[in-house]
Nucleic acid binder design. Structure first.
Lengths: 250, 250
DNA sequence: CGGTATTTTGAGTATCGTCAAGGCCAGTGG
DNA sequence: CCACTGGCCTTGACGATACTCAAAATACCG
């Protein structure tokens, strides 16, 4: 299983001994969509690494509403490394495979393996960057802008992972939205109705096709980036390169 | 100067030797409000620790608009620790003192001082939590909600730092907003006019007093939390405790 | 004291949230 | 096999909110 782990950019640099130790303490787990992996405010007794599928991090408010604060994909780490309990619960958005390390053992290993500590550090820096990307998307005034930014983020971040497919022939990218409209609405600071309208507006402009409610085909990445307003031009460039590269491939 | 640094929660745990080494490589710097400390996308050649004042992290878009993605206060660290250049520039929002460590030397020390690496790790975890708090505030649908959340965040995070003062007698907390309306508007995903209206609406309800455009007296923390909707009840509890404690003190 | 930048206010319009209804799909039980 | 149910997504209509543009008031600076 650590073969899979090793593919994660973050963990591939660690020394064989450390990897051995990780391997020894690691336990594979599978959960199906909807199950809760970690409860909010409970002391975390393990650290997890996602192998496949998508998890959502969500904060449950006192009145019962949920608030999604991020998504986890293959290669991502979750669980508090050192201090206190998690501030949000972690729930499977799709069927998920992950491996878990007992917290105490993991921290002990962390303390005596600088390479692992470095890997964890890089992982968290990465996560921080992603949180900032979310912030920029969320600070878009209009719902279509936020939705467009979300779609772009989905394909740039989750490319290569199960939920994004490139369709070279048509020059489009197919994205599966791993969360319900209502959750997406909370994530983007709006309501499901507005999400629906935004998607259909993008569809009317022929920027995207709604294959199914949760399967979107992105036809015009640049137009979407313009709608998102953001300087996700880097993202766009990357995606375009990828598309044309694939087209030449065949 | 490291006396100041040591006060930062994050660095107080490091060993004397490491502290010595840090001290040796550290250089104090002062910049005045408005100056740019680090440019976006330039390779970062130093790591900085804020001693006093407030810095803003901002992304400059291709069309020249700026997008604030966070604020840095005393105790915060900035600059890329390992990989690539920073994704945003760092600018002084007020007059700022900070100390800087040459990047190469800092990373070398990091590699041979697990205690420092641990401290840096905790610092970044902290920053990640803050980014997620921003996300929750930003995902509030209404502008008054976001503004209220912003004010609460300001006092909970920046308490004890120059820009927040407790006024025990009146039971209020005075906050100085360290950025202009237009920047705050960008940060909260709205326009300056709406920020103004939101603040004056809160003022009309007697939740806050606008002493000066950038100096706000918070009169009713709970009401503000209700307006922010969020479960910042923890924050509220903390603030209330603090207020009553101070009141008893005198 | 003038000149500039920032903040505020006002009026009109677009957008979005709200409420209510309808459609689609999957699962259930007759 | 079909009707029924419940969940989710969509659509429409209406009211609230926020954005736009323009102008006034205020603060800031020389």
């Amino acid at each position: 299983m650590l073969r899979v782990l090793a593919k994660s950019l973050v963990l591939k640099e660690i020394r064989p001994e450390t990897r051995e130790a990780l391997n020894a303490m690691c336990r594979a787990k599978c959960v199906s969509a909807g199950q809760v992996v970690l409860h909010e405010d409970e002391p975390t007794n393990f650290i997890g690494f996602v192998l496949s599928g998508i998890l959502r991090m969500e904060k449950t408010l006192t009145d019962g509403r949920r608030h999604i604060v991020g998504l986890l994909v293959a290669g991502d780490m979750f669980g508090r490394v050192f201090d206190g309990p998690l501030e949000f619960s972690i729930e499977a958005a799709t069927d998920v495979e992950f491996c878990s390390f007992p917290r105490a053992a993991f921290e002990a290993l962390l303390t005596r393996s600088p390479d692992l500590e470095r890997a964890v550090l890089l992982n968290i820096i990465n996560e921080l960057d992603r949180a900032r990307e979310w912030m920029i998307i969320l600070s878009n005034q209009k719902v279509v802008g936020r939705v467009s930014g979300f779609l772009l983020l989905m394909c740039s971040r989750f490319r290569g992972v199960s939920h994004v497919l490139l369709k070279p022939g048509t020059g489009g990218i197919e994205v599966t939205i791993p969360i319900s409209r209502i959750d997406l609405a909370h994530l983007l600071g709006t309501r499901p109705e507005s999400i629906s309208r935004a998607l259909h507006s993008l569809s009317d402009q022929r920027y995207i096709d709604i294959l199914e409610p949760d399967r979107i085909l992105i036809r015009d990445v640049e137009a979407l980036a313009r709608a998102a307003d953001e300087d996700e031009l880097e993202i766009v460039a990357t995606l375009k390169d990828l598309l044309s590269a694939r087209r030449i491939d065949r």
